[in-house]
Design a binder for these strands. Structure first.
Lengths: 133, 133
DNA sequence: CTGAATCCTATTTGATACTG
DNA sequence: CAGTATCAAATAGGATTCAG
Protein backbone atom coordinates (compact mmCIF):
# COMPACT_ATOMS: atom_id res chain seq x y z
CA UNK A 1 0.00 0.00 0.00
CA UNK A 2 0.67 3.04 0.43
CA UNK A 3 -3.00 3.57 0.21
CA UNK A 4 -2.72 7.30 -0.26
CA UNK A 5 -4.08 8.65 2.97
CA UNK A 6 -6.70 11.30 2.50
CA UNK A 7 -5.44 14.07 4.66
CA UNK A 8 -7.24 13.74 7.93
CA UNK A 9 -7.82 16.94 9.77
CA UNK A 10 -5.90 16.44 12.99
CA UNK A 11 -8.15 16.74 15.97
CA UNK A 12 -7.12 18.01 19.34
CA UNK A 13 -6.70 14.93 21.47
CA UNK A 14 -4.85 13.19 24.19
CA UNK A 15 -1.09 12.88 24.59
CA UNK A 16 -1.04 11.04 21.32
CA UNK A 17 -2.00 14.22 19.59
CA UNK A 18 -4.09 12.86 16.80
CA UNK A 19 -6.19 9.79 17.06
CA UNK A 20 -3.92 7.37 15.32
CA UNK A 21 -0.79 8.14 17.31
CA UNK A 22 1.09 8.34 14.06
CA UNK A 23 0.43 4.79 13.03
CA UNK A 24 -0.68 5.78 9.57
CA UNK A 25 2.66 7.48 9.07
CA UNK A 26 4.47 4.15 9.18
CA UNK A 27 1.87 2.20 7.32
CA UNK A 28 1.85 4.73 4.54
CA UNK A 29 5.57 3.97 4.25
CA UNK A 30 5.80 0.25 4.75
CA UNK A 31 2.26 -0.89 4.10
CA UNK A 32 2.84 -1.43 0.42
CA UNK A 33 3.50 -4.70 -1.23
CA UNK A 34 7.29 -4.81 -1.31
CA UNK A 35 8.95 -2.38 1.08
CA UNK A 36 9.19 -4.66 4.09
CA UNK A 37 10.44 -7.53 2.00
CA UNK A 38 13.25 -5.40 0.66
CA UNK A 39 14.01 -4.05 4.12
CA UNK A 40 14.13 -7.54 5.58
CA UNK A 41 16.42 -8.76 2.83
CA UNK A 42 18.71 -5.78 3.29
CA UNK A 43 18.72 -6.38 7.03
CA UNK A 44 20.76 -9.48 6.26
CA UNK A 45 23.51 -7.39 4.72
CA UNK A 46 24.59 -5.45 1.66
CA UNK A 47 22.80 -6.50 -1.49
CA UNK A 48 23.13 -5.72 -5.15
CA UNK A 49 20.12 -4.84 -7.23
CA UNK A 50 20.12 -8.19 -8.87
CA UNK A 51 20.52 -10.04 -5.60
CA UNK A 52 17.46 -8.31 -4.22
CA UNK A 53 15.58 -9.13 -7.36
CA UNK A 54 16.34 -12.80 -7.00
CA UNK A 55 15.86 -12.90 -3.25
CA UNK A 56 12.36 -11.49 -3.47
CA UNK A 57 10.33 -13.76 -5.70
CA UNK A 58 7.64 -12.04 -7.66
CA UNK A 59 8.89 -8.49 -7.51
CA UNK A 60 9.25 -6.79 -10.85
CA UNK A 61 12.28 -4.80 -11.87
CA UNK A 62 10.17 -1.72 -11.87
CA UNK A 63 8.82 -2.19 -8.36
CA UNK A 64 12.26 -3.00 -7.02
CA UNK A 65 13.59 0.22 -8.51
CA UNK A 66 10.76 2.24 -7.06
CA UNK A 67 11.01 0.57 -3.67
CA UNK A 68 14.74 0.96 -3.27
CA UNK A 69 14.62 4.55 -4.37
CA UNK A 70 11.94 5.35 -1.86
CA UNK A 71 13.95 3.69 0.89
CA UNK A 72 16.92 5.84 -0.05
CA UNK A 73 14.84 8.97 -0.17
CA UNK A 74 13.50 8.27 3.28
CA UNK A 75 16.95 7.72 4.69
CA UNK A 76 16.28 4.06 5.41
CA UNK A 77 18.79 2.74 2.91
CA UNK A 78 21.76 3.98 0.96
CA UNK A 79 22.88 3.31 -2.55
CA UNK A 80 26.43 2.83 -3.73
CA UNK A 81 27.04 2.81 -7.45
CA UNK A 82 30.33 1.59 -8.86
CA UNK A 83 30.93 3.07 -12.29
CA UNK A 84 32.02 -0.20 -13.77
CA UNK A 85 30.85 -1.86 -16.92
CA UNK A 86 28.44 -3.38 -16.51
CA UNK A 87 27.24 -1.15 -13.68
CA UNK A 88 27.18 -2.42 -10.16
CA UNK A 89 24.95 -0.99 -7.47
CA UNK A 90 24.81 -1.94 -3.84
CA UNK A 91 22.19 -1.15 -1.25
CA UNK A 92 22.48 -1.25 2.50
CA UNK A 93 20.33 -0.16 5.40
CA UNK A 94 21.11 2.91 7.44
CA UNK A 95 20.90 2.75 11.24
CA UNK A 96 17.37 4.08 10.93
CA UNK A 97 16.58 1.39 8.41
CA UNK A 98 17.93 -1.27 10.73
CA UNK A 99 15.79 0.02 13.56
CA UNK A 100 12.78 -0.24 11.27
CA UNK A 101 13.73 -3.80 10.42
CA UNK A 102 13.77 -4.56 14.12
CA UNK A 103 10.34 -3.05 14.65
CA UNK A 104 8.99 -4.96 11.71
CA UNK A 105 10.47 -8.16 13.03
CA UNK A 106 8.42 -7.71 16.18
CA UNK A 107 5.28 -7.35 14.16
CA UNK A 108 6.24 -10.51 12.33
CA UNK A 109 6.52 -12.21 15.69
CA UNK A 110 2.95 -11.26 16.44
CA UNK A 111 1.94 -12.64 13.09
CA UNK A 112 3.50 -16.01 13.70
CA UNK A 113 2.06 -16.21 17.19
CA UNK A 114 -1.48 -15.54 16.05
CA UNK A 115 -1.50 -17.00 12.60
CA UNK A 116 -3.30 -20.13 13.73
CA UNK A 117 -5.73 -18.24 15.91
CA UNK A 118 -6.79 -16.08 13.03
CA UNK A 119 -7.01 -19.03 10.72
CA UNK A 120 -9.37 -20.79 13.12
CA UNK A 121 -11.41 -17.66 13.65
CA UNK A 122 -11.85 -17.30 9.92
CA UNK A 123 -12.84 -20.92 9.58
CA UNK A 124 -15.45 -20.46 12.32
CA UNK A 125 -16.77 -17.29 10.75
CA UNK A 126 -17.00 -18.79 7.31
CA UNK A 127 -18.81 -21.80 8.72
CA UNK A 128 -21.31 -19.56 10.49
CA UNK A 129 -21.76 -17.28 7.51
CA UNK A 130 -22.42 -19.55 4.57
CA UNK A 131 -23.69 -16.55 2.64
CA UNK A 132 -20.35 -15.54 1.35
CA UNK A 133 -19.84 -14.37 -2.11
CA UNK B 1 -3.95 -2.27 1.70
CA UNK B 2 -4.21 -5.01 1.56
CA UNK B 3 -2.33 -4.96 -1.63
CA UNK B 4 -3.36 -8.39 -2.75
CA UNK B 5 -0.23 -10.40 -2.45
CA UNK B 6 0.59 -12.46 -5.48
CA UNK B 7 1.12 -15.84 -4.03
CA UNK B 8 4.81 -16.21 -3.56
CA UNK B 9 6.16 -19.66 -3.93
CA UNK B 10 7.68 -20.36 -0.55
CA UNK B 11 11.32 -21.15 -0.84
CA UNK B 12 13.16 -23.45 1.43
CA UNK B 13 15.06 -21.21 3.76
CA UNK B 14 16.37 -20.59 7.22
CA UNK B 15 14.52 -20.94 10.48
CA UNK B 16 12.17 -18.24 9.27
CA UNK B 17 10.90 -20.63 6.67
CA UNK B 18 10.14 -18.27 3.88
CA UNK B 19 12.03 -15.11 3.22
CA UNK B 20 9.64 -12.66 4.76
CA UNK B 21 9.23 -14.40 8.09
CA UNK B 22 5.50 -13.95 7.75
CA UNK B 23 5.59 -10.19 7.68
CA UNK B 24 3.36 -10.00 4.66
CA UNK B 25 0.75 -11.95 6.58
CA UNK B 26 0.25 -9.08 9.00
CA UNK B 27 0.57 -6.35 6.47
CA UNK B 28 -1.99 -7.97 4.26
CA UNK B 29 -4.30 -7.73 7.27
CA UNK B 30 -3.50 -4.35 8.77
CA UNK B 31 -1.74 -2.58 5.92
CA UNK B 32 -4.91 -1.11 4.54
CA UNK B 33 -6.16 2.36 5.08
CA UNK B 34 -8.46 1.93 8.06
CA UNK B 35 -7.90 -1.30 9.99
CA UNK B 36 -5.34 -0.01 12.46
CA UNK B 37 -7.34 3.13 13.11
CA UNK B 38 -10.36 1.06 14.02
CA UNK B 39 -8.26 -1.27 16.12
CA UNK B 40 -6.68 1.62 17.97
CA UNK B 41 -10.04 3.20 18.65
CA UNK B 42 -11.45 -0.09 19.87
CA UNK B 43 -8.42 -0.54 22.08
CA UNK B 44 -9.80 2.33 24.15
CA UNK B 45 -12.95 0.38 24.89
CA UNK B 46 -16.27 -0.77 23.55
CA UNK B 47 -17.56 1.34 20.69
CA UNK B 48 -20.79 1.57 18.78
CA UNK B 49 -20.74 1.73 15.00
CA UNK B 50 -21.59 5.39 15.04
CA UNK B 51 -18.96 6.18 17.65
CA UNK B 52 -16.31 4.58 15.50
CA UNK B 53 -17.56 6.49 12.53
CA UNK B 54 -17.21 9.79 14.33
CA UNK B 55 -13.95 8.91 16.03
CA UNK B 56 -12.25 8.12 12.75
CA UNK B 57 -12.50 11.18 10.55
CA UNK B 58 -12.66 10.47 6.88
CA UNK B 59 -13.81 6.87 6.96
CA UNK B 60 -16.89 6.11 4.93
CA UNK B 61 -19.76 4.06 6.23
CA UNK B 62 -18.93 1.44 3.70
CA UNK B 63 -15.30 1.08 4.73
CA UNK B 64 -16.19 1.02 8.40
CA UNK B 65 -18.62 -1.80 7.77
CA UNK B 66 -16.08 -3.74 5.74
CA UNK B 67 -13.30 -3.12 8.23
CA UNK B 68 -15.26 -4.12 11.33
CA UNK B 69 -16.54 -7.21 9.63
CA UNK B 70 -13.09 -8.26 8.64
CA UNK B 71 -11.87 -7.74 12.19
CA UNK B 72 -14.67 -9.96 13.43
CA UNK B 73 -13.99 -12.60 10.85
CA UNK B 74 -10.34 -12.68 11.84
CA UNK B 75 -11.20 -13.05 15.51
CA UNK B 76 -9.71 -9.67 16.39
CA UNK B 77 -13.01 -8.08 17.37
CA UNK B 78 -16.48 -9.14 18.31
CA UNK B 79 -19.83 -7.69 17.48
CA UNK B 80 -22.83 -7.42 19.76
CA UNK B 81 -26.12 -6.45 18.21
CA UNK B 82 -29.03 -5.37 20.39
CA UNK B 83 -32.30 -5.92 18.58
CA UNK B 84 -33.66 -2.55 19.54
CA UNK B 85 -35.23 0.05 17.33
CA UNK B 86 -33.24 1.72 16.07
CA UNK B 87 -30.61 -1.02 16.07
CA UNK B 88 -27.59 -0.75 18.30
CA UNK B 89 -24.35 -2.53 17.61
CA UNK B 90 -21.26 -2.62 19.75
CA UNK B 91 -17.77 -3.73 18.86
CA UNK B 92 -14.96 -4.71 21.17
CA UNK B 93 -11.54 -6.23 20.74
CA UNK B 94 -10.81 -9.82 21.61
CA UNK B 95 -7.65 -10.67 23.55
CA UNK B 96 -5.99 -11.36 20.20
CA UNK B 97 -7.14 -7.98 18.97
CA UNK B 98 -5.72 -6.30 22.03
CA UNK B 99 -2.39 -7.99 21.50
CA UNK B 100 -2.39 -6.69 17.96
CA UNK B 101 -3.12 -3.21 19.24
CA UNK B 102 -0.09 -3.51 21.46
CA UNK B 103 2.14 -4.60 18.61
CA UNK B 104 0.86 -1.78 16.47
CA UNK B 105 1.50 0.68 19.24
CA UNK B 106 5.14 -0.32 19.18
CA UNK B 107 5.34 0.35 15.50
CA UNK B 108 3.76 3.71 16.14
CA UNK B 109 6.52 4.36 18.65
CA UNK B 110 9.08 3.75 15.96
CA UNK B 111 7.21 6.14 13.73
CA UNK B 112 7.25 8.96 16.21
CA UNK B 113 10.90 8.38 17.01
CA UNK B 114 11.99 8.55 13.41
CA UNK B 115 9.47 10.90 11.92
CA UNK B 116 11.89 13.80 11.96
CA UNK B 117 14.78 11.75 10.71
CA UNK B 118 12.82 10.64 7.70
CA UNK B 119 11.56 14.14 7.10
CA UNK B 120 15.09 15.46 7.01
CA UNK B 121 16.27 12.63 4.81
CA UNK B 122 13.53 13.39 2.33
CA UNK B 123 14.36 17.07 2.35
CA UNK B 124 18.01 16.25 1.67
CA UNK B 125 17.09 13.85 -1.10
CA UNK B 126 14.71 16.27 -2.75
CA UNK B 127 17.34 18.99 -2.58
CA UNK B 128 19.90 16.73 -4.23
CA UNK B 129 17.48 15.45 -6.83
CA UNK B 130 15.86 18.51 -8.34
CA UNK B 131 14.66 16.37 -11.22
CA UNK B 132 11.53 15.26 -9.48
CA UNK B 133 8.23 14.93 -11.18
C1' DC C 1 -28.86 3.46 13.58
C1' DT C 2 -26.51 -0.03 10.99
C1' DG C 3 -25.54 -1.82 6.87
C1' DA C 4 -26.23 -3.56 1.89
C1' DA C 5 -25.91 -2.57 -3.14
C1' DT C 6 -24.27 -0.07 -7.04
C1' DC C 7 -21.50 2.68 -9.58
C1' DC C 8 -17.28 5.05 -10.40
C1' DT C 9 -12.51 6.81 -9.89
C1' DA C 10 -7.79 6.99 -8.27
C1' DT C 11 -3.81 4.31 -7.16
C1' DT C 12 -1.01 0.64 -7.33
C1' DT C 13 1.12 -2.89 -9.65
C1' DG C 14 2.53 -5.93 -13.61
C1' DA C 15 4.22 -6.65 -18.46
C1' DT C 16 6.96 -5.35 -21.87
C1' DA C 17 10.26 -3.08 -24.53
C1' DC C 18 14.07 0.02 -24.53
C1' DT C 19 18.78 2.47 -22.87
C1' DG C 20 23.65 3.53 -21.05
C1' DC D 1 23.53 -4.91 -14.82
C1' DA D 2 20.66 -1.33 -13.40
C1' DG D 3 17.30 1.59 -14.64
C1' DT D 4 13.58 4.04 -17.58
C1' DA D 5 9.20 4.53 -20.16
C1' DT D 6 4.79 3.24 -21.53
C1' DC D 7 0.77 0.82 -21.31
C1' DA D 8 -2.78 -2.24 -19.33
C1' DA D 9 -4.85 -4.76 -15.45
C1' DA D 10 -6.33 -5.12 -10.92
C1' DT D 11 -7.91 -3.30 -6.71
C1' DA D 12 -9.15 -0.35 -3.00
C1' DG D 13 -11.69 3.12 -1.68
C1' DG D 14 -15.40 7.01 -2.12
C1' DA D 15 -20.17 8.70 -3.17
C1' DT D 16 -24.67 7.75 -3.31
C1' DT D 17 -28.84 5.42 -2.75
C1' DC D 18 -31.78 2.05 -0.63
C1' DA D 19 -33.48 -1.16 3.38
C1' DG D 20 -34.69 -3.24 7.98
Amino acid sequence: MSVAHTQVTPQAGGPCGDDDCGIREVLDRIGDKWTVLVVMELSKGVRRFRELHRAIPGISQRMLTLTTRRLCRDGLAERTAYPTIPPQVEYHLTPMGRSLAEAVRQLADWSREHKDGMQEARARWDAEHPDEG
